[in-house]
Amino acid sequence: MDIIPVIDLLNGAVVRAVRGERSNYAPMVSGLCSGHDPVVMARALLDASRDVHLPHAGQTTGGKQKLYVADLDSILGRPAQLETLRRMVQALPDISFWLDAGFTDRAMADELLQAVEGDITPVFGSETLASPSALRRAFTAPGILSLDRRGEQVLDTAGCWAMPAHWPDRVIAMTLERVGAHQGPDLEVIAALRAAAPQARIIGAGGVRHVADLLAASAAGAAAWLVASALHDGRLERGRTG
């Protein structure tokens, strides 16, 4: 299983995400480093994720280490944080970035990727994709689909959840109500998505508290997990399960 650290950016600083309630996000206070600088924080998260060992959780994909970045300014309809994103990409040339910037369609993603430049894969959220046709066109080039939900409510203007034939080979199960909430991963959603798209790598997000949660997620069919709070808080120390 791959552990993919997450950076949430707001106004050029790293913030702590809690339950997807973006109006309540506050500057990150981390046990890994001080301050809120995205490059400093990214390096600390990447180092911490490399130190986590998951016995019997399957093989990682290898290759370049990955970092998930959410540009909350862009997701909220403001201008993208271009200078911050460029600085991160230039400072971390050996990292493969997954970028969620509230993309409504492929054209919006391509424009931002060209403006930033680097090893960046766009993440298309069901919360922001504009239409079923935008979903179909989004993956004419490499990309990742994030299936977003909060509790029992799917956030899905484009109907993505009901169109597994159009899902790409990497799909994120984004359970927003569990992000930063220490409630454990939603294993039922992982299993359901594995059944709906057995050809896809399912990547979980939200709820991880300790190593045992990651092992359970792997057993449920998750190939990777997006992690922030558990790394910042030191709850994924080697061998620690609770």
Rank of each mutant, 00 (worst) to 15 (best):
M28K: 06
D37M: 03
L9A: 05
S49K: 06
A42E: 03
T61W: 15
L45Q: 12
L10V: 12
H36I: 06
R50A: 15
R50Q: 14
D51Y: 11
V39W: 02
K66E: 11
G12Y: 09
S49Q: 13
S34R: 10
N24H: 14
D47V: 14
S34I: 04
L54E: 04
V29W: 02
Q65K: 04
R50H: 14
Y25N: 00
V40N: 03
S30K: 03
R22C: 09
D47Q: 13
D47I: 06
V14F: 01
P27C: 06
S34F: 09
Y25P: 03
A57D: 02
V18L: 15
D47W: 07
R16I: 03
S34Y: 06
M41F: 01
A13D: 07
G31T: 12
H53K: 13
R19M: 11
D37S: 07
Y68I: 07
N11A: 15
P27V: 11
M28C: 14
V39R: 01
A57I: 00
D37C: 07
M41L: 11
L9D: 06
V18A: 14
P27M: 07
A48D: 01
P38H: 05
S34Q: 15
E21W: 02
A26N: 09
L67A: 04
V15Y: 05
L46P: 05
H53I: 11
V69K: 01
G62I: 13
G58E: 12
S49F: 01
S23I: 11
A13T: 09
A70H: 02
S30I: 05
D73H: 03
V15S: 06
A42F: 01
S49W: 05
Q65I: 11
Y25T: 02
S34A: 15
R50C: 09
N11K: 09
G12W: 06
R16K: 15
L54P: 04
G31C: 13
A17P: 02
D47H: 11
L67K: 03
